[in-house]
Write a protein that binds this DNA or RNA. Structure first.
Lengths: 209, 209, 209, 209
DNA sequence: GATTAAGCGAGACGGTACGTCAAGTCTTGTT
DNA sequence: AACAAGACTTGACGTACCGTCTCGCTTAATC
């Protein structure tokens, strides 16, 4: 998997792209994101801080979203996958770790800005899905694989939907700010996922899980 | 609760605000949102379509996000609260109804745009939380109240977190586009919420807070 | 005749154009032309010096050439039409006055830059012809009218061509820099125009047309 | 005198300059000038059409003006010096031939563009003066030498100023477009130069030619 | 009925950032 | 060394919207 979004130069001929410029751009972009957030993040300012022409940026990144994404990747350090011995413990550790990374941090602020940008920049949307969302999900599915191996959950349990519940709830609170990303929230989310609301019998729809 | 975001005029003296202009603005805004989406939604264009001065818009709405919000409210017709006799049925109906409203529709596109805007416009964020998120949640809590009354779930079940799981999963797929908002997705979400993954005993993680 | 190139606002409605901005733009433009010449004359710099948005300039002047022209008009003070009592004296005074105005001066430098710009900017070419070249020529024709009245030259003498010889020679040396605009040059030009090379009879080319 | 502006290579070591590249560059440049005029004439486009690196162009020509000049030289075929037997006939033939070459032709358009460029590119100004203006003038002075030999004009007649009148008038109309380069214009210019306006006596300045 | 205060459409205002273009220079691997 | 290719920095371009600010003109409520 490539390190960044940067597309390869169309041919092998000609002067190679300067890795030094590249580093300067990413450094300036990260710094700017950290200091000011996505709202004040402009190509112009990055270009000026990195002492690089705007064209040098546009040669590498098609939109400012994709540049911000690359700068964000360095910042959002990959969190170690928890392995507590139980699914419940793993899920709780994962959600808590995510909350710690995003709640009240510049990372969280950037994350919100990027998800906003994803909604308007289709180029970024592709990158975001393929280079951020999917890898994270793939990693996280291991928690469910292990639970199946341990016999904790059925082999056909839908890990995809489970992940949507776990992180969906988190992103929901992050993006809508209706309620805080508290520790109690994390526990309750995981408890609910593991045990359910326990409303199997009375009404009863098609109860097949 | 007022129909729109519009603040009251400071006094009663002078020429009253034209309700006709107001209607023209909202109509133009809705039309523009529907046609072009939030990305091309500019105050300039609304002003030009509505044949209204820009100041007339800014007198009523502080930011373009709040105007878009009001235009969106008309579009996003309030969905009837389902009452199927079981929590599972209610949740499934609610989620399916939401998916029908947003999947592949201009409403869904606008919804994505608005949530994006909420991340950068604090004025809109307040309006969004108080006039959209909270009302919808309040309405939806009824489903859990009824389930408690029916004895389906415990009285102290956390409806807030349950709603975060239900809609959080939906918004997650809407905003990240990693997987489709299929009917199967809806069923699985609800099944999981109701029955859980069923991994209570074997592993038994740190079950405290 | 209007003072400047500036086109009228399309309608009478809306906020009127600020005459103060206009003055600031023209002042900054003149200053810049004088200091740096046409080569460094940029809309960006004018906008920055005049503390005016670029759009405010573009609203009035379609191209940078037309703005430079207006700034130049103030600088290139209309020279008083000489009246020495003889055509020879008038022509000599006029040419010397022109040389004094352009030789080694910032006006001369700007004049060269503007004529260069005229070759590439059709908008400016029209303005230049109608608002600079023609008025100057009209004024200068008076010298020939007076000479006819005095009986110095024939009534059907071609004043247009005479002006082309007089100023054409001057502009030629200004633009090609092959020889200096000396005082001797002025005298010789006028003598030649008045007396001719005196090669009427011996050779006798095709004297028709 | 060298054919082009191209400076000699610094040493004789290493790979010799490709004459093929040189031809390709000049061909592409001429073609581009002819098709699009000086305004759209860019080194980038020449380089792309000639399939030649930009450095290969800059190795030979210091600025785009000098390249355009060389491309123009081929186009602007040297006109044969007229020899009609009289000064009047020679001057008329020369001016008409020039008019034929530049009026409404791509050569004329390029000529205007080059003179414009001369005003801003000092490198080109030198080349222009030494390799275009002076040679043409030297050639044209022969017409006056012959006239002196024939006894048509005085031996001390100022041929330089005479050339400034002849071509100055032509360039004036070419560059200012205030009046057409008609055949009648040519005749009148020459008549005036040969016979003068005939205003020797009444006013009378220092009438020494 | 006159006054007065605010709203009205229109559009200009100072700004900011956009994405593009071409200039002339530099850096590869290849010839 | 020169070559083709295509990177580089620089700097200006002309455009688009932002949110604010005049204009001359309604339009009511208050005096």
């Amino acid at each position: 998997m490539p390190e960044t979004v940067i597309p390869a130069a169309p041919t092998r001929r000609g002067r190679p792209r300067s890795q030094q410029s590249e580093r300067a751009i990413l450094a300036a972009a990260s710094e700017l994101l950290e200091e000011q957030g996505f709202a004040q993040f402009t190509i112009e300012e990055v270009s000026s801080r990195a002492k690089v022409g705007k064209a040098t940026i546009y040669r590498r990144w098609p939109t400012k979203g994709t540049l911000a994404f690359d700068a964000f990747q360095a910042q959002f350090a990959r969190q170690p996958l928890p392995d507590t011995g139980s699914l419940r413990g793993d899920l709780l550790a994962a959600l808590r770790s995510w909350i710690r990374a995003v709640k009240g941090t510049s990372t969280g602020r950037t994350l919100r800005g990027l998800i906003a940008e994803v909604q308007r920049d289709p180029e970024l949307a592709d990158v975001w899905r393929d280079r951020f969302v999917q890898p994270v999900r793939t990693r996280n599915r291991t928690m469910f694989d292990r639970a199946v191996a341990r016999g904790e959950i059925a082999a056909d349990a839908d890990a995809e939907v489970a992940l949507d519940l776990l992180y969906g709830a988190g992103y929901h609170r992050l993006l809508q700010s209706h309620l805080p990303l508290s520790d109690r929230f994390a526990t309750t989310v995981v408890d609910l996922m593991v045990s359910g609301l326990g409303a199997g019998e009375p009404g009863g729809g098609s109860s097949g899980a």
